[in-house]
Design a binder for these strands. Sequence first.
DNA 1: TCCACTAGGGTAAACGATAACTCAAATAGG
DNA 2: CCTATTTGAGTTATCGTTTACCCTAGTGGA
Lengths: 340, 340
Amino acid sequence: MVEIARRAGVSTTTVSKVLNQRPGVGEKTRARIQRLIEQSDYVQNHAARHLRKGRSGLIDLVLMRLEGGYDLGIMQGVQEVLEQSGYRLVVFATNEDETTERLWLRRILDQSSDGVLLLLPYERVGIADTLLEQGIPFVAIGDRNEPTTAFPTIGSTIWLGGYTATEYLLSLGHRRIGIITGPLHLTTSRARLAGYREALEQAGIAVDPALICEGSYLLGDGIRQTEALLDLPDPPTAIFAGNDAQAAGVYQALYRRHIRIPEEMSVIGFDDVTYSAHMAPPLTTIRQPLEEMGRMAAEMLLRLIAGQTLETHHVELATSLVVRESCGPPRQGPLGRGNS
Amino acid sequence: MVEIARRAGVSTTTVSKVLNQRPGVGEKTRARIQRLIEQSDYVQNHAARHLRKGRSGLIDLVLMRLEGGYDLGIMQGVQEVLEQSGYRLVVFATNEDETTERLWLRRILDQSSDGVLLLLPYERVGIADTLLEQGIPFVAIGDRNEPTTAFPTIGSTIWLGGYTATEYLLSLGHRRIGIITGPLHLTTSRARLAGYREALEQAGIAVDPALICEGSYLLGDGIRQTEALLDLPDPPTAIFAGNDAQAAGVYQALYRRHIRIPEEMSVIGFDDVTYSAHMAPPLTTIRQPLEEMGRMAAEMLLRLIAGQTLETHHVELATSLVVRESCGPPRQGPLGRGNS
DNA sequence: TCCACTAGGGTAAACGATAACTCAAATAGG
DNA sequence: CCTATTTGAGTTATCGTTTACCCTAGTGGA
């Protein structure tokens, strides 16, 4: 910068003014300096600006683990917004480890992060208090557990998703629909289940407790609970999996038993992660607009950083049904199982 | 820091010495200051250190697109190493857009990145020249196209992987093995094919050109080329997909035609991305040690940043066969296709 | 007893940019 | 023609740390 100032025959102040497009510089001088800047391969020193202005140009995204499902969709959305904003995205995985988490938190607090995106489940949101206390702007993604939370959150209409999924299966003619939920201590899991119940009740169908299985959003649960459902005296004709990973488990269990999807069993998932379209057959699922949620969260955060106040603290995006090929009309008669 | 110095009755210099564990401070004083630091909730200012020391504590990972396959595994490995090193990971996706790429490059050059991890294919590596020129340490991940590259690269034994996959299928008794390669202008795609050829030749089996299909590593290619293979007068009994995404395509095509895996068709993939274990049936594949590659790359970069010279410029990690459930002995007789 | 040396600790100048403030010249109005 | 005002540009302090360098008191040897 000094170099440029020297070459232009002005002071660094003037160059700085040009660089930051501030008033107080003559038209000709501005143009001359501008040209000089463009010619040279000068780039502003990040550290110095950061030190002086107090903004690092960095936004942190914290998550438990890079998994390639839920998290990935969000990241894509965040990336998209940040890319254009001039902010850079720092990714940090806590690996569910408290120590690592504390380490990260300490690093954040040195003013090296302009804002934080929290992609953490339930308990961990104690972090939120610290951030709140330190005055670091942040937005939490995923559904708040307690409606009282005092910080901005982004979620999606989970209940409606559960309802829609069930309603869709009903519309295809299914009457016995199994559901493999997530851990029922999570509100989001309960929301899905509540939607399922509501849809059944509206259709005048009694909820059979035997058709409700609890999982913990892992593939293994999908396998295990599907087997349990299949071993029922009167197995369901469709299975609603609480998320797509569990749906993959359902696929595996059915495949082993030589049960065709969707001819003999319909399967519907939840989330619409990247690989659900890759499954065979492509998975019909309830889409959470993950990218959109990421975008939204990033935009909210940016506004927060800019000092604007948010109109609403909690934004809920619409889930939607994505019809692919894993659902069809119910089979007639019993399952023709194990024909190998 | 001033505050701490005041409380300890010393100068900031001394505090700084304690903070950085440098000599020139008495034992008692050091202990006293140390205690004071721990008590207070002081955190060093990142910007100031950065400015003074010239190190930002940031490492950039550039990739084309967050996809959840290859990239994700690498990221996980990188994350793991960086987490412990005190560096933070900045993720940037170029979206294959030159402008975006240039934008990023400019931002990197302001000394705000201590090092770069390049996860870009072939052509784009022109970036490498700029980095080289600017003296920014970096490591490229994925296989170098030209063996002459003057910068550090990390790859894996692709050729061997192709060989192993084919050999495995042969050992199961397959004699007609289809292969869906990646774009053949990429060395890595050709390496797989070369391994395939070698294995066949060693087994004394003539290579049938009709069994070799070119794809571009996308799911759709898997579908299309599988159909082509199935429509052959004498279709293969096994398919070797160039990557796992294509293997997913193979699954879909086979599913549509009601062809069972592995009973009627064996399928083997390449990469071992996160979702390959999720497929139904779980995919047997050639594992590229993605996490390990990420770790390795990060470690090399760290060493480079520390000013050490690397023993070797190019590191190649071993691929390995991961046997799951998608391969079996060849079917006897023709395909019993379309029984629905 | 005196001197040279060392260890502990302080001073002040960077690092590169920004911003509040100051100053000089040009301009406009009376 | 002189003064008030605007405008362009420079001075200098500052952001929070680190570090090259300096100083002082204490120690050991002659």
